[in-house]
Nucleic acid binder design. Sequence first.
DNA 1: TCGAACTTTCAATAAAAAATGAAAGTTAAA
DNA 2: TTTAACTTTCATTTTTTATTGAAAGTTCGA
Lengths: 178, 178
Amino acid sequence: MKVRKILYICTMNYDEAKNKFISTWGALGTLWGINKAMAQIHALLIISPEPLSMEDIMEELQISRGNTSMNLRQLMDWGIVFKENKMGERKEYFTSEKDVQELARQIAKERSRRELQPTIKILNDVSNIKEDGTAKTKELIKQTKALHEMADTLDIMMNKVIGQDQNWIAKALVKLIK
Amino acid sequence: MKVRKILYICTMNYDEAKNKFISTWGALGTLWGINKAMAQIHALLIISPEPLSMEDIMEELQISRGNTSMNLRQLMDWGIVFKENKMGERKEYFTSEKDVQELARQIAKERSRRELQPTIKILNDVSNIKEDGTAKTKELIKQTKALHEMADTLDIMMNKVIGQDQNWIAKALVKLIK
DNA sequence: TCGAACTTTCAATAAAAAATGAAAGTTAAA
DNA sequence: TTTAACTTTCATTTTTTATTGAAAGTTCGA
């Protein structure tokens, strides 16, 4: 019996690939509590060799001016998108941080500041209630302490990573595997 | 001049602390794309010394039967909540995984399977488009390759962590700090 | 096999989040 | 200044997501 193996290599063209990338990034963002437009604008900027104007972005993603403006601002608040000016032009242009390691570092930094640290504070408050000897109080204290400890450890790890040089991921990986 | 330092120690009672914990966990979940009810049910189970019935949960969180049922199922799909039966009772009871390290490991495992791996596949497809010499194509290939590499590394790290023994966090931390 | 005790499903509704676009605001060159 | 080019804001609308609850489904003991 003859067996025939066929290897399908799917090769998209530029536009297909670009759209696939942008829509995948948008869908992934949604899954992580980031709105679609914001994730898509970011995806678009990350693969664009040139800075883009607001008009460019609106046109490309078919979204309104207001939406574009608000989401660009949020991306700038996260420190991963920047305004740029071209000489002799009024219009503002936007670029993304292009170095993915720097991008990861910046996102880690912001998530720590915005989410992890406030959570740690509350876990600490909750785990400091007065022990009254009941099982439910014991369990609440025990579990919030455990979560507090884990959150603390994560935060320290993330901050370690944030302060790390360019190749931290490779190095951390080597260390973990050893 | 006399300086007086006052240290305020906020001590909530059990119910305040419990509510604070449950609502904080819910709000945090929302931020991460997890619905409020699901996060709150999980929070409730994690601090409950005894398994709870559907009635208990509905009552405690003031949510409907359907909502409770669907979210419990999702939590079970994530492998972090389990059904339990009490002898001689028809009713089903639910408990959460109580070990926060095991919890973290389970969540890491599922997120890798559900999100990271599909994303890696798409980044791979996109980065394999035909190089046509234009700047935009070059940039698309370069950036999706960089993201692919980072996602791969993260996935390897997460799987490493998943396979790790109980104290992985402490150990990983020691290694990173060294 | 019945029926009571319980759970799941799902169409309908409610709530929350995102998007729109026109008006108000800003800026810089003339 | 004025004005034209551009950006931001925010009340309104649209879309998406979560929730409800009643009907259908399941399971087990008698």
